[in-house]
Design a protein around this nucleic acid. Structure first.
Lengths: 360, 360
DNA sequence: TGATTTAACGATAGCGTTATCGTTCCTTAT
DNA sequence: ATAAGGAACGATAACGCTATCGTTAAATCA
């Protein structure tokens, strides 16, 4: 209740400095104001103050008003440690992302935050810079901090270690990773089907010689993209000309572009793990005079904001990132409250046909 | 000590499941393991366990080893609420950014994290989506959460409210905003000088008719960029053709681009508040057949990763974002420890001359 | 009227830690 | 041998909060 937004703020002119019950304006220096301070200033017991501030009832209108006024005048802030220790709830949830500098994740975070706030939860964002060790450590730290639950995005941790790491957490939701319903809620993006459909369209327009920029080999999502790609190619009796793995960022994309120079003429379509790789690769290719999409079609994945702003604009698979974040958070909150009804949700990306492919 | 990385991990094979002192493998379900559990299992007092786990000395080698082993076997995790309540320190610092989806900030966050971790601090990232109300509220929430300090990036809050909001916080560092040394450490980016130098170069190459995309009018950094621009123009007897304000993102940039269409022919250089606006505006201009840089030169600010990957590559003012984050964090940690030696640090951006201007 | 309920509080205890001081017991110096 | 010192612990209390139960007084009912 008190955590995200004090009821005081809602119901009483706390911040107005017109109040003058207790004149203690600038004692902020030393110890901070406790509930007991408020209680004695208002002439009631700490328990009454607690009741008022938490809207638990059991206080007369006059008492209530007086307490709120005093609390405001003293600029009282509940100590969340004491409260959380007592109630064994933190009203904090963690979200762990592989790389916050990848524009895919901030939007998920924003969505998660959007769903968390009205429920009174604070979101603790943790960046693990694509490092499994760090991931394991961070999940442990979150446990020490007694978060009420965790959302794990694209966890890279190997299954046994992942299980050990999340053991002890009250609630867990995974994005792009699966675990039994009892252990964690899971949300998957249907990359396989989406990439399959995308490749079908490329084949329909005459593309035959495909390269795949696969991102990190440890990525679960990368394997799913690959399987969709393979299915489409197989259906038409085609094989992959080459696969290049790289880090899933712009620098990785540059590396892919340079690697592909050796295959110039041998490929006419490049399917990328994500938009960053696509943009990085395209940049190198354009520098070498390779015409996109005439000579090589390029596709990304995610539809990060800048994808529509490069030129030619990038054809990609849009994932509703903010919705995804909201969905994950709602699922987590449900699990925190003991409801784990939803589980294996599958999200379908939308094909955003833009300039880097010449779809009709 | 215990917070970020337990000394147990460092000194003893805690996680090895070969230990068999107390056989309590899967009791994770109910209550979590407390220091008292460890104490009784190891046959010592809780105080002794606490001493061992915090490396305070006062324990024999045998006792120490036994305690560590038991703690490992029980998978003990200290309860940070209890600890923080007792010691009145959280080992958490907050960082407040206006928009986490703006690629400028994730890198600052990463830098801050880099400096925070070795010191045993966890970073709590808060996104305020360019909303002053939300900013005020978030700073208050951080106070309730008893963070040890806060870094505020580009605070949009009006001065009086800002002061009131940060009152009570143990330590505060501002990026791109100034307040007296006693109140907060400040780090400024010298946009005025950098933009001035940039505009001088544009003038030197013959540009005369300048437009300025100023971002949000409330931005302190925007005013500084403007003053640098004005100084350079004034020196050459030039005036600004037009100023367009917008949100500091890609959509804002598009709006700027569309607004500028009315001035086609009347401007030959567009100086933008940041790279996102520049990229958004360029995209519209290219769609309208305006040649960059031949007809209009475009410059950004920040040097976000994608700036070098659009085409033509964007000329911009590089800010060492990660260093900035590290610097801010170190300044904050100093303040938390009562040292506020550094204060008004000024960072100089570097001019990254690229394709959107035709500098020699 | 007397019995019973209800509202409005207060007193107490305890959440899991650690600071502080006290108690042993073993050295070492005198 | 005795005193003084230190090392290795244990007992206690407190951090700020709230769950729980107890108390009082007013309101309601038979």
């Amino acid at each position: 209740m008190m955590d995200a937004k004090s009821p005081m703020d809602a119901k009483s002119p706390m911040r107005s400095s017109r109040t003058s019950i207790a004149a203690a304006p600038e004692l902020t220096a030393g110890r901070s104001v406790t509930i007991t301070d408020v209680a004695s200033a208002a002439g009631v017991s700490p328990m009454t103050v607690s009741r008022v501030l938490n809207d638990r009832g059991g206080a007369s209108a006059e008492t209530r008003a007086r307490v709120l006024e005093v609390a405001g005048a003293l600029n009282y802030r509940p100590n969340s440690f004491a409260k959380n220790l007592r109630v064994d709830r933190s009203k904090v949830v963690g979200i762990v992302v592989p790389d916050i500098a990848n524009p895919f994740f901030p939007e998920i975070i924003r969505g998660a935050e959007l769903a968390a706030r009205p429920a009174g939860y604070t979101l603790l964002t943790c960046n693990v810079v694509e490092d499994p060790e760090r991931e394991e450590e961070v999940i442990g730290t979150l446990l020490e901090r007694r978060v009420d639950g965790v959302i794990l995005c694209s966890a890279r941790l190997e299954e046994k270690r992942l299980l050990r790491a999340i053991e002890g957490h009250r609630a867990v939701v995974l994005i792009n990773r699966v675990l039994p319903r009892r252990i964690a809620g899971t949300i998957e993006i249907d990359y396989a089907a989406a990439v399959e459909a995308l490749v079908e369209k490329l084949i329909a327009q005459g593309r035959r010689r495909f390269a795949f920029a696969s991102g990190l080999s440890t990525s679960y999502g990368g394997q799913k993209r690959r399987s969709g790609l393979d299915r489409a190619l197989a259906r038409h009796g085609l094989g992959l000309v080459t696969e290049v793995s790289s880090s899933p960022d712009l620098a990785g994309g540059s590396a892919v572009g340079r690697a592909l120079l050796a295959h110039r003429g041998a490929i006419d379509a490049l399917v990328c793990y994500n938009d960053l790789i696509a943009i990085g690769a395209m940049s190198v290719m354009k520098g070498e005079g390779i015409a996109v999409p005439e000579e090589i079609a390029v596709t990304g994945c995610d539809d990060i904001p800048v994808a529509a702003f490069v030129s030619p604009a990038l054809t990609t698979l849009r994932v509703a990132k903010q919705d995804l974040g909201e969905l994950a958070m709602r699922m987590l909150l449900d699990r925190i409250d003991g409801r784990n009804t939803q589980h294996g949700i599958l999200i379908e990306p939308d094909l955003m046909a833009r300039g880097t492919t010449d779809f009709p």
